[in-house]
């Protein structure tokens, strides 16, 4: 009896009750957290769904601006000839002249500052819908240069992640967590609020001329020609970019598209060759793709008035250059027909 009493009195009831409450409150705390977290996630999910839905609607409803041009290239154009590239494509190839000479419809999908990832993504979207007859890919110096900015710029293609599964592998190159971030419906429209708002008005149409994707430059360069030793321009190349370039060529060849790789004019006398250009030429040679080089064209090298700056021709230069490209295409088409 004494032993039992001792046992009872030695046991600290207050501590036991306190521990019990703590355990209970901890369990309740976890349940509380789970319920609250669940409710919060539902709220955030609903907000994300609706706000993302609104942005999605207005993004694809745009009628002008850079985003509209990207959307038109991926989802609407059915042109026979498509031009791909960055600013040197967008601002130098006038589809009107190419259409007049070749009798084929043409659209310029080029976009200022965009790397090879972008062209490849757009090509995937195009090939899903139809097969163009001819593709011109503008190749420039430094095209394979390693740069984080090139990956950041893939944000332009984020709105297509859900609607265009064929573009996902290239979009996912952006970062290891891109797939996770893209679970949000709002995230693809990050930093696009004003672009989308303006794209739904006619404001952009007044801001710049857009001739089937071609955006003319009106300045005139007034400086003597320089000599640039391109072989001295050493940099690390990005294998992802080279792989994208290779895939671009392979996909075109697989779809029986006549592909022309074009290096458009520069206003400097080049000594040696740029690393990226060397690689691009070697790949073209391996795959037996025509590489047309206008970078040493005497007409352009002797006339600064055809340039807006040393790497972009202006509206007058573009007229001459586009006609030259059209003539080349025509002769290639005719020789193939024979």
């Amino acid at each position: 009896m004494t032993e039992v009493n001792l046992f009872i009195f030695n046991f600290d009831y207050s501590q036991s009750i306190e521990m019990g409450f703590k355990k209970l409150s901890a369990v309740n705390g976890y349940q509380h957290l789970l319920i609250k977290t669940g409710a919060f996630i539902i709220l955030a999910f609903i907000a994300d769904f609706f706000v993302g839905g609104i942005f999605h609607y207005f993004y694809f409803k745009q009628s002008s601006g850079w985003e509209y041009r990207t959307k038109y290239s991926i989802e609407d154009t059915r042109a026979d000839v498509l031009i791909f590239g960055a600013s040197r494509a967008q601002q130098q190839y006038n589809p009107d002249y190419i259409e007049k000479k070749t009798g084929l419809t043409c659209y310029n999908t080029g976009r200022d500052g965009e790397p090879v990832f972008y062209y490849y993504g757009v090509l995937q979207g195009v090939l899903k819908r139809y097969t163009p007859k001819i593709i011109i890919l503008d190749v420039e110096n430094n095209v394979f240069r390693e740069s984080q900015d090139s990956y950041d710029r893939l944000s332009i293609l984020l709105p297509y992640y859900t609607t265009h599964p064929e573009m996902r592998p290239v979009i996912e190159l952006r970062s290891p967590f891109e797939k996770l971030k893209l679970q949000s419906r709002v995230y693809p429209f990050n930093s696009m609020l004003f672009k989308i708002a303006i794209g739904n008005t006619d404001f952009n149409k007044k801001r710049f001329e857009d001739i089937k994707g071609y955006v003319p430059l009106t300045g005139a360069l007034d400086e003597p020609i320089r000599t640039v030793d391109l072989s001295k321009n050493k940099y690390a190349v990005d294998t992802n970019k080279i792989n994208c370039y290779k895939s671009f060529i392979n996909d075109c060849l697989k779809a029986n598209i006549k592909l022309y790789l074009v290096c458009s004019p520069y206003f400097f006398r080049a000594v040696g060759e740029d690393t990226s250009m060397q690689i691009a030429k070697e790949i073209a040679k391996e795959r037996k793709v025509d590489f047309i080089d206008f970078s040493k064209d005497k007409l352009f090298l002797s006339n600064s008035k055809f340039f807006d700056d040393t790497i972009h021709v202006n509206v007058s230069g573009s007229e001459i250059f586009s006609n030259k490209v059209a003539d080349t295409l025509l002769s290639k088409i005719n020789s193939n027909a024979r």
Binding site: F40, A47, D48, V51, S184, F189, N190
Partner: peptide, 9 residues
């Protein structure tokens, strides 16, 4: 939730 949406946007 609005703050999170604004962060994403």
């Amino acid at each position: 939730s609005l703050l999170i949406i604004l962060i994403m946007l």
